[in-house]
């Protein structure tokens, strides 16, 4: 069987297309690369969707934290504290069992116990909390002169936010937000290792990598493959985010603005 056949059989295995049974014996390198790669579909899915939804959620949370009104500030503060103060791993476990017991009483919660929705919600809340504190920090570090100038020009309310505060906040927060995005992609690997079951063995990349490591007792092949895939994904994310960073800073001389510096160093 050539490698292309394997790719055809297992390339989309993680979303249920292709051969049903996973390889049982005589694992080839090609099979491992293909299956782990197909598992990356889930990592990308979780990462991209929760990044997108979480972005807007984070902005509203950051504005809530920044607000003068206590009934906006307190809930936002608590939300950020809860999701930043506890491990993502425990959050995933708790959410799964919460949805499981809700499901017993209301059939509406049926899809929530599946990873594609339940884990997604947790990841959205988690990344929103972390990004909210990044954007809150950015809001706090907007130069006072910018706001004063806006006031002097007679801008106020929505216009002042849209034309002055919003772009400056994004610009200042963006390098830190890039790192957050990278951690988020790495954190997606936790999903199937917490309680969320991989239905019909449709798991993410780490799920397949540990499957191979279990079957072959040899961690030296699947985990480096997985590492390679993640490094590739990280480079893509960095490329995309630095393009946006350049766009956000296009009015500032190139040597003055903060370049995105890679800081891959945090767990959740």
């Amino acid at each position: 069987m050539s490698c292309w056949d394997t790719v055809a059989d297992y390339g989309l295995r993680a979303i249920g297309i292709g051969l049903r049974g996973l390889p049982k014996t005589d694992f080839t390198l090609c099979q491992q690369v293909t299956l782990i790669g197909s598992g990356m579909i889930w990592n990308v899915y979780f990462g991209v969707i929760s990044l997108f939804v979480g972005f807007f959620f984070a902005i509203s949370l950051a504005l809530g934290k920044f607000s003068d009104r206590w009934w906006l500030r307190l809930p936002a503060d608590w939300f950020v504290f809860i999701f930043r103060g506890s491990p993502l791993f425990i959050q995933l476990f708790f959410a799964y069992f919460l949805f499981l017991s809700l499901k017993k009483h209301y059939s509406f919660f049926d899809p929530f116990t599946a990873a594609w929705l339940g884990a997604l919600i947790v990841l959205v809340c988690n990344t929103a909390a972390y990004s909210a504190s990044i954007f809150h920090g950015a809001l706090l570090s907007i130069p006072k002169g910018d706001i004063e100038a806006a006031d002097a020009y007679g801008l106020s309310g929505w216009t002042r936010f849209r034309k002055i505060i919003w772009p400056t906040m994004l610009r200042l927060g963006w390098p830190a937000y890039t790192n957050e995005a990278i951690f988020l992609f790495h954190a997606t690997a936790l999903v199937f290792f917490s309680a969320f079951p991989a239905w019909q063995q449709r798991g993410d990349a780490l799920y397949y990598a540990s499957y191979f490591a279990d079957k072959t007792f040899n961690p030296f092949v699947p985990y480096p493959i997985l590492g390679g895939f993640f490094i590739l994904l990280t480079l893509l994310v960095i490329g995309f985010f630095s393009a946006i960073n350049r766009r956000l800073n296009r009015h500032i001389p190139a040597e003055d603005y903060q370049k995105i510096r890679l800081r891959l160093n945090m767990f959740r």
């Binding site: 790495h186 690997a189 780490l206 990598a209 540990s210 590492g227 993640f230 767990f267």
Partner: peptide, 11 residues
């Protein structure tokens, strides 16, 4: 620092 976190743990 370069290797994704839990991968390092499992490996």
């Amino acid at each position: 620092r370069g290797v994704p976190d839990i991968v390092f743990f499992l490996f």
